[in-house]
C-alpha cells in the first residue's frame, strides 16, 4: 500500500519532468492567430444595400440588442454590444442575408459609448 503510493509519486515527478522536453503549445497571440472554425460567430455585420427593413431581426433577438429604424429614404441600424449575446438568430432569420456574423472578436473598448454600433444606409462608410 505504502510502496504503491511512493511509486505513484515518483512516476508523477517523471511525467512532469518529461513534459519539459515536449514542444511548447502556446500561440504568440497578437502575431499568430488561431484558425477560426467555419461557423464561428463574431460581432454581427449589417449590409445596408441588402436590407429591406422588415424588422424580423428586431423581433427574434432574445436580448433586444438589434434595432432597425426606417426613415424616408434611409434605414438606420443599431446594435448594442453590451446586450448582444452573439446567438446568431438575426443572421439565421434574415430573409435577404443582410446581417452576417463576422469573424471579428477583438471588441475591447475603453468607453461605454463605443459599445453601441450605429450605421446609416445614407453614409458611405458603413462598411
Amino acid at each position: 500500500m505504502f510502496l504503491n503510493k511512493l511509486k505513484a509519486i515518483i512516476e508523477g515527478h517523471f511525467t512532469v519532468f518529461k513534459h519539459s522536453f515536449k514542444k511548447r503549445i502556446t500561440q504568440e497571440y497578437p502575431e499568430v492567430k488561431q484558425d477560426l472554425p467555419e461557423n464561428f460567430r463574431g460581432v454581427p455585420d449589417w449590409y445596408a444595400e441588402k436590407c429591406i427593413a422588415c424588422k424580423i431581426c428586431e423581433k427574434v433577438c432574445p436580448a433586444n440588442a438589434v434595432r432597425i429604424e426606417k426613415g424616408v429614404d434611409n434605414v438606420k441600424f443599431g446594435l448594442n454590444l453590451s446586450k448582444c449575446i452573439i446567438c446568431g438568430n438575426c443572421a439565421y432569420n434574415c430573409p435577404k442575408n443582410a446581417i452576417i456574423m463576422s469573424k471579428n472578436y477583438e471588441t475591447a473598448v475603453a468607453s461605454k459609448s463605443l459599445l453601441i454600433i450605429e450605421k446609416n444606409s445614407k453614409d458611405n462608410n458603413y462598411e
Binding site: V16, F17, H19, S20, K22, K23, R24, I25, T26, E28
Partner: peptide, 10 residues
C-alpha cells in the same frame, strides 16, 4: 519560467 516549461507554456 520553469513552471511554464513543465506545463508546455512559454
Amino acid at each position: 519560467k520553469v513552471l511554464a516549461l513543465f506545463t508546455q507554456r512559454k
